[in-house]
Design a protein around this nucleic acid. Structure first.
Lengths: 343, 343
DNA sequence: TTGAAAGCGCTACCAA
DNA sequence: TTGGTAGCGCTTTCAA
C-alpha cells in the first residue's frame, strides 16, 4: 500500500466516485449498492463490494447525513460515568443501537446545568436521529431546545416529572419510601439520609423525599440529612457518618445515596465500634458488585439497569420510525443482606 | 414559539441562511462571525449573535465537517465500560476534549475483535479529528485501517508493543512482575493468576507473563492459571478460587486480574476457612473504590487513571495541530493493604 | 469589512 | 436496473 503517497502523508480519503470510476458505473449506482442493494444487479453488486474491499473504502457519513434525512447518531447525555449504573446503561444502550447502525455520541454533564446546556446544544448540532438523556429535570433552556429540535428524546433513569417525549426509568420517590419502610419495619427508629448529593441530582432528592414522607407517615421524627456536594467516594461516606453520629448520637438507621458511600459508612461504624446491623442499620442504592462481598454484606436497592439501556434503545428506534412516545417504568428490587436486621 | 408550525410537527431546523436573511447580511458573514469573529464589525457581530440567540439557532456540524477540513469528532474505542478504569479514562478524556470543542463518539468492543473492526470502520466514517483506542493489540485490519486513515491515533492503557502513532499507558508486564515480587518478598511460594481473561485482553496476558517471568527468576514453580472468558464478577472470582484450591491445595498466593474478581476470591477463602493474609495472600488490580472497605482490605495496583484521560486528550490535541507523535508511560503504584502479609 | 460562487461527498428524485 | 441532476448547509477561496 502507499503507492505514490509520501510516507506519513494523509492520503485524501476515497470517495464513492473513486469506487464508481473503478467499477465503471455511476456514483449513484454505488450509493444504491450500499443503501438499497436489491436495486442493483447481483454481479455488479459483487464487483462494487470487491472494489470497496480492495481500496479499503470508508464511507463519509458526514456527507451521508447531510444529504439524507437522518444522521445515524444517537446523542447520549449522562450526569456521571463513575456510577456503574450509568456505565451499564451506556453499555447496553450502545450495543443495542449498534444493530441498527446507530452510533453513540457521548456527553457527560458531571451534574452541571450549564455544562448540560452546552453539551445538549453541541449534540443537537450533529442532527442526531435521537437523544437519550439522564433525568427529567433539566436546565429550562435544555428542555426547550430538545423539545424544539423535533428529534425523538428519551429521558432515562427517572420517570418522576414532566417528560419531554419518552422516558425509561424508575420512580425514585417510591425507592426512597421502600428504603425507609425496610428500616422502619425492622425496628429502626431514627433515620438519616446520607451521601454525595449534587445540586442537580434530582433523583437523590426524590429518594430522600420519598423516605421523608414514609417516615412522617409512620409518626417518627423527621429524617436527618447528611449530604455534601463533592463526588461520591467511601472516604466521604466515612466522614459524613462520623460527623452525623457526633451530632445525632441517636441515629440508628442510615439510607445511603449510593453503595460506594455506604462502604465508607460501614468502615466508619466499624471504627467507632457500632455494630451493624444490631446498633445501626445501613441500606445502600445501586447494588454495586462489591456489595455482596463486604462485611457485613450490604442491603441495597438494585435497579434493573441492563433493561434501561435495552428499553431506551428500543424506544429510540420506535420513535425514529414514527412510533408513539411512551413512558416505561423499570423494575427494581430491594436486596436484603446483613447490614440491616432481619424481621 | 411555534408560530405557523403544526403542534408536534418537527420544524425544519434553522440554517445560517435564516440568520443571514434576518440580519440582512450574506450567509458567509454569519459564518465568519462564528469562525473568525474579528473579521466582522463588532456591531454586526452583536446583531448576529442576538438573532442566533432569539431563534435558538443550532449549527449543523455535519455540513461544517463536510465543508471544512476537520470534523470535531474524536472517536473513542474501549473494550469494556464496566471497568471503572475505563469509565475514569473516558470521563477525563471527554471533559479535557470539551475545552477544544471536540465531541466524543463512543464505541465499545466488549473484547470482540470482529466488533472492533466494525466499530473502527464506523468511527472512521465520521472523519474524526482523532481516534483514541484501548490497547495496542488489534485486529490486523484495524491497525491497517487506522494507519491508512491519516487520522491521529492514540492508543491508551497499554504501551507494550507496536504503536500505530502515539500511546498513553502502562507497562503491564512490569505490573505483573511487581505483583509477583510483592508476594514472593512476603514469603508466598506457590502463586496463581486468576480472573476473567478474554481472548482479546492482551493486557491481562501481559501481566500474567510478567508475573510468570518473575516467578521463574525466583526459582519458584510456574504460575498456575485459573481463568475464564466470561465477564468479571465476584461470583466468578469465588468459583474460580474454589476450583483452584481444590486442584492445587498448595497455592498460597493469588494475583487477580481485577479487584472485582478479588472480592469474590476473598469471599471464597472466608467460606472455606482460609485465613488472609496468613494462609494465602491476595492481590488485585485496579484499586476499585471498595477495595479499602472490604475485609481484609485489598492489596492492589492503582494505575494513574485520571492522567491517562488527560494525557490522551493532550496528545490528541497536539497531534491534531501537527505536533509530533509520542509514547507516554503512565505511573502506577502498588498499594499495600491487609490481604497480603507485611514484610 | 463584506459578498458571490464553488464545492465538500453523498442521497434523492426523476428520467431513461 | 441504471444514470443525470440537484441539492443538503456549511466553509473557503477570491473579488469587490
Amino acid at each position: 500500500m502507499g503507492g505514490d503517497i509520501e510516507p506519513g502523508e494523509a492520503r485524501a480519503p476515497l470517495t464513492l466516485a473513486s469506487i464508481a470510476s473503478r467499477v465503471g458505473v455511476s456514483v449513484n449506482t454505488v450509493s444504491r449498492a450500499l443503501r438499497a442493494p436489491n436495486t442493483v444487479r447481483a454481479e455488479l453488486r459483487r464487483e462494487i463490494a470487491k472494489a470497496m474491499e480492495e481500496l479499503n473504502y470508508v464511507p463519509n457519513r458526514l456527507a451521508g447525513g447531510l444529504a439524507g434525512t437522518r444522521s445515524d447518531i444517537v446523542g447520549v447525555v449522562v450526569t456521571s460515568l463513575y456510577y456503574s449504573e450509568f456505565a451499564a446503561i451506556i453499555d447496553t444502550l450502545q450495543s443495542s443501537l449498534l444493530a441498527s447502525n446507530l452510533q453513540v455520541m457521548l456527553a457527560n454533564t458531571r451534574y452541571d446545568a450549564d455544562q448540560e446546556l452546552k453539551l445538549v446544544r453541541s449534540i443537537l448540532s450533529w442532527r442526531p436521529a435521537a437523544v437519550a438523556i439522564i433525568g427529567v429535570d433539566h436546565h429550562p433552556k435544555v428542555s426547550e431546545l430538545l423539545r424544539a429540535s423535533g428529534v425523538p428524546i428519551i429521558e432515562m433513569w427517572d420517570i418522576g416529572g414532566d417528560i419531554i417525549d419518552s422516558a425509561v426509568g424508575l420512580d425514585h420517590q417510591a425507592v426512597g419510601a421502600a428504603q425507609a419502610s425496610h428500616l422502619i419495619e425492622r425496628g429502626y427508629k431514627s433515620l438519616a439520609f446520607l451521601g454525595s448529593v449534587r445540586e442537580n441530582d434530582a433523583r437523590a432528592q426524590k429518594r430522600a423525599k420519598g423516605m421523608q414522607q414514609r417516615v412522617l407517615a409512620a409518626g417518627l421524627q423527621a429524617v436527618t440529612m447528611a449530604t455534601k456536594q463533592e463526588s461520591g467516594h467511601p472516604d466521604l461516606g466515612e466522614s459524613l457518618a462520623l460527623d452525623l453520629l457526633k451530632r445525632h448520637p441517636d441515629i440508628d438507621g442510615i439510607v445511603c445515596n449510593s453503595d460506594v458511600i455506604a462502604f465508607g459508612v460501614l468502615r466508619a461504624l466499624a471504627k467507632i465500634g457500632k455494630r451493624v446491623p444490631e446498633d445501626i442499620g445501613v441500606i445502600g442504592f445501586g447494588d454495586s458488585e462489591a456489595s455482596s462481598c463486604i462485611t457485613p454484606s450490604l442491603t441495597t436497592v438494585r435497579p434493573d439497569r441492563e433493561n434501561i439501556g435495552r428499553l431506551t434503545a428500543e424506544t429510540a428506534l420506535a420513535r425514529i420510525n414514527d412510533g408513539a412516545s411512551r413512558t416505561v417504568r423499570v423494575e427494581w428490587q430491594l436486596i436484603e443482606r446483613n447490614s440491616t436486621r432481619s424481621v
